[in-house]
Design a protein around this nucleic acid. Structure first.
Lengths: 220, 220
DNA sequence: AAATATTGTTAGATTAACCTAACTTTGTAT
DNA sequence: ATACAAAGTTAGGTTAATCTAACAATATTT
């Protein structure tokens, strides 16, 4: 099925919201704000995608991707993450620059291109942000759900990914001395506002709860 | 200046027509047919591009790119040819497959991407079809103007590029045993219909005038 | 030079993706 | 349980890129 750039973005956003929030109850307003359009616009598009059997929903009800819609959304995420990996590994883009360009590249239509790119990159499993890359069958590695904010003082963990892919956040992560696979030691947590003192490679930093919620980790 | 995918295609088509035909008198109908739209549509777009100072023309007059318009068109061709080179050299696409995908990739907006890609490919001078790749300053190597159809029996030449980049033509070229840098010996030419018997690596073939007009060569 | 053919232009309609403003339904709080 | 707030929908309008059909200008032919 041939979809427009815009239609693809709606499907991707729907999948992303369910991924990120865990919940599968996606609403029109939420979708609209994720895509930076008005709810009325999102509503129109939902009707269109329903026509095409890519989403399943009824008036005032919750929005769900059909299996076909989900398949397409996963393919777009696969392309996005493969391109990010290409930009980072082969073209020496920095961590915080890859997302924006991959947003464009993910819409290139060519099955052969995706397959060849995957091969060229030696079938990578994770992108530069630590997110799993769906394989050619659309299978995705199990998702890391624990964040730095859940850790307690005295414990140690390893960073595996970031939740927020925006440039400002990623640049801040670098500033703190953090990167994928780095060890983080939790020194202390301020009761009042949940500010956290962490240590990375001997460097101590104080980070906000918001920051800590956007760092995915695994226990040591 | 940020242009739409469509606007970029109009600028590219204008430059391409002047390149290919040699003449610089481009008409509305010709432009429209190159872009596979109706003349009325092309006319509307020309007004818009004139507004943006990218083309220069007056009612019923001839169409010209302004220097700004030309600069943009060259940048698009640069991107197109770099991507073709990438697909061919790094992703093992065949000669006849690269064009279609590059038509999409050429519209990705990121100066950094172009520069890094150029570097990654070691600053190539020619694309897989033998066409020169404009450098980062927009400079293009002098164009090969002689075609196989201009050769006379008994002479020998070297193929340097193709004029037609379409899949069917390129597949035919391969079938005849031809490729960039191959030597071609002209055995004979049929007076009546200008059919040409050529020899490539010992393989003799009979090709039409139309075929011969689409092969760029240099004399031995 | 007049007739005809070609080429270019205008007017008005369509579609996709967006908007605002008004309205309806659902959910929440007193 | 009613009232209010939040979420979702509809109606009607805009813009970019396209179309068809009618018209105007230029070029070609006899």
């Amino acid at each position: 099925m041939l979809l427009s750039y815009t239609e693809e973005n709606y499907l991707k956003a729907l999948l992303k919201i369910t991924f990120d929030s865990g919940v599968e109850k996606v609403g029109t307003n939420e979708l609209a704000s994720a895509l930076d359009v008005k709810p009325a616009t999102a509503n129109d598009m939902l009707k269109k995608l329903k026509e095409k059997m890519l989403v399943d929903y009824k008036k005032y009800g919750k929005i769900n991707l059909t299996s076909e819609g989900k398949k397409i959304a996963i393919e777009i995420i696969r392309k996005h993450r493969l391109w990010e990996t290409f930009l980072y590994q082969k073209l020496e883009f920095s961590w915080d620059e890859v997302h924006e360009v991959a947003e464009q590249l993910e819409h290139i239509q060519s099955q052969k291109l995706v397959d060849k790119l995957d091969k060229f990159l030696a079938y990578p499993e994770f992108d530069p942000h630590g997110d799993p890359i769906p394989n050619s069958k659309g299978e995705i590695k199990v998702y890391h759900k624990k964040t730095l904010s859940e850790m307690t003082p005295g414990t140690t963990c390893t960073m595996v990914a970031v939740k927020d892919n925006s440039s400002p956040f990623l640049q801040y992560v670098v500033k703190v001395g953090l990167g994928i696979n780095n060890e983080i030691k939790i020194i202390s947590i301020q009761e009042y506002d949940l500010m956290m003192v962490i240590e990375v490679n001997g460097q101590r930093s104080t980070v906000s709860q918001k920051f800590a919620e956007n760092i995915y980790i695994v226990n040591k």
